[in-house]
Design a binder for these strands. Structure first.
Lengths: 249, 249
DNA sequence: CGTGCGCTTGATACAGGTCAACGCGTGTGG
DNA sequence: CCACACGCGTTGACCTGTATCAAGCGCACG
């Protein structure tokens, strides 16, 4: 007998959209009514793959993902991390063939939404269409900043910058306390995100710990001096286009 | 007396949108009817600047632009080049404050369109809204590939890749013959796009010329062996999401 | 006719890559 | 229940792509 469908939980989606776009009760309800098929993924699996032609997009309900591309000679570049509420392949609503793959970094629960349902909702509620559009634009802004980070900052500030971005994004969806969060990202994954080697990531992290910039135990990250990390990472959260500035007081 | 308003020419916009989205006569006409205020910019001017809160977006009608961000210590990273038909700040329709600046690389003619007019058109014609949304998504896809290029390819293939992208995009809007185009981009600008120094760009270009990969006279670029350039640049045009694959036969 | 910008070249320095090996914790199959 | 394999973090020695610095050249333009 087939497993019962997993219970759906739309709240990460709503929370995420509200972090960048104001919704009224009616709109919130419309989102909650979206048909969603929930699936569980183990760590290290591809949710979608470059070249796919999906008829649905997905929301991350829990867990962490990375969005990546492979080069011809087998190197991986991670272009963004996904956290609860993110829709890493929302673009496929308009772009038929996927130009990226999305893999889970941890066990994940994801909710699939048929393009048809999304499309109908957008036609009926232009403001929700605007919210989704805006969501993809914010994602685009983050890619631009990622280019700057990889192209123009050395490994040390580059790492600082990514840590800042992750903390702020996690805070925006309620997944981080003031200066602490769970960040289950391995050094290899950071390496592929920063465009450096694992060895170098290791040395950078050690130096950051030595200088009291960060504290880690297990996957727990703590940032003792947020202002200093921000300064070193040359981090300005404007590009995340959050409604409430989550720059952390 | 004030100068007469410049004559507007919507055709670059229509041509660009049609390269990624099928339009019918009615939709084409709706675009042609968009109120547009044309302005001429000299070379090296900012059209819009990071931090601006524009009430309009612009289409490049002629000329070349670059979209860039500055780091805290004054380094510039170009995140994309703009050619006729592109709308480098279309995102500002939904994101109030600009996270990028756009500068002209050559004298440019640009057409400003009020957000209000765009917004009305999108509400009346959902398919045109979809076309604009798609336009921003394609731009996002190009940023992702730019991250990969800067993060994971060495300077030589990185340059090859950018040249491939530019040729294909120019072809898509009718600004390039098969393997030749006008590319008025200085070595300094390439440096800021690739995340390397001008000196290094110079050496890379010389090597490419020496190996017969490219030929240049003035701003004229010719590519004698397209397949080889593509292979070296690890270039696959899928991410540009063109309707007709402009991969150049 | 100078002056500045874009291009070019050479010498030298360094951030980060490569290669190789080891420790440690954990899950697993014999 | 132990041995072993494997993933992740760590370390050291050495190498290289690219940066940095400095200078010269030619041409377009005021």
């Amino acid at each position: 007998m087939r497993p019962a469908p997993l219970p759906s939980d739309h709240s990460p989606l709503v929370r995420k959209l509200e972090s960048i776009f104001p919704l009224d009760d009616h709109e919130r309800q419309a989102l909650l009514d979206l048909p969603m098929q929930v699936a569980a993924f183990k760590e290290g699996q591809d949710v979608v793959r470059e070249g796919d032609r999906p008829s649905r997009s997905f929301v991350i309900l829990s867990g962490f993902t990375c969005t990546y591309k492979m080069t011809g000679d087998g190197k991986r570049q991670i272009v963004t991390f996904g956290v609860a509420g993110d829709m890493p392949d929302l673009q496929s609503l308009h772009l038929k063939v996927l130009d990226i793959s999305v893999a889970t970094l941890t066990p994940c629960s994801v909710g699939f939404i048929q393009h048809e349902d999304l499309w109908n909702l957008c036609l009926r509620q232009p403001r929700i269409a605007a919210a989704f559009w805006r969501e993809t634009l914010v994602e685009g802004a983050a890619f631009r900043e990622w280019v700057v980070n990889v192209g123009r900052r050395e490994a040390y500030p580059r790492m600082a910058h990514i840590l800042c971005e992750l903390l702020v994004r996690l805070r925006a969806v309620g997944l981080a306390e003031d200066h602490t969060c769970d960040l289950p990202i391995t050094q290899t994954e950071f390496a592929d995100a920063l465009g450096v080697t694992t060895v170098h990531v290791n040395r950078v992290l050690q130096q950051m710990r030595a200088e009291g910039l960060i504290e880690t135990k297990g996957s727990r990250l703590n940032i003792p001096d947020w202002e200093r990390l921000k300064a070193i990472g040359d981090f300005d959260p404007t590009y995340l286009h959050l409604r409430r500035d989550e720059a952390v007081p």
